[in-house]
Amino acid sequence: MVIKRPVIGAHYGLKDWLVQRLTAVVMLAYVVGVIVFLLASRGGSYEAWQHLFACSWVRVLTQVTVLALLWHAWVGVRDIWMDYIQHTGLKLAAHTLTILWLVASLVYSVKVVWGA
């Protein structure tokens, strides 16, 4: 049993905060791009979508956006655990499960974006 002392001063936090803001900008840019595509193609038929995602750079941008989304989600979900879970062990377990879930989502996103 560790002695109960208030311990603070982890000397990190700025990077996560900054990353959350920057990834939000990436996601916003992508959403605006998709909206422009939808307007230009009048709703986006199946063929128009297929044509769009045939371009490698669209896939790259999509994958980058998915990465931004997952990184953003990591900071946000971790924040929720930090706010509401007080027990260190439980918090660590929640963090681990979140990482596993996000990594699994990343792998699946690669299959979706780069698959046939």
Partner: peptide, 11 residues
């Protein structure tokens, strides 16, 4: 330095 902490400032 004293404030750069996920809890102290970034909550």
């Amino acid at each position: 330095d004293n404030l750069e902490d996920p809890y102290r400032l970034f909550r």
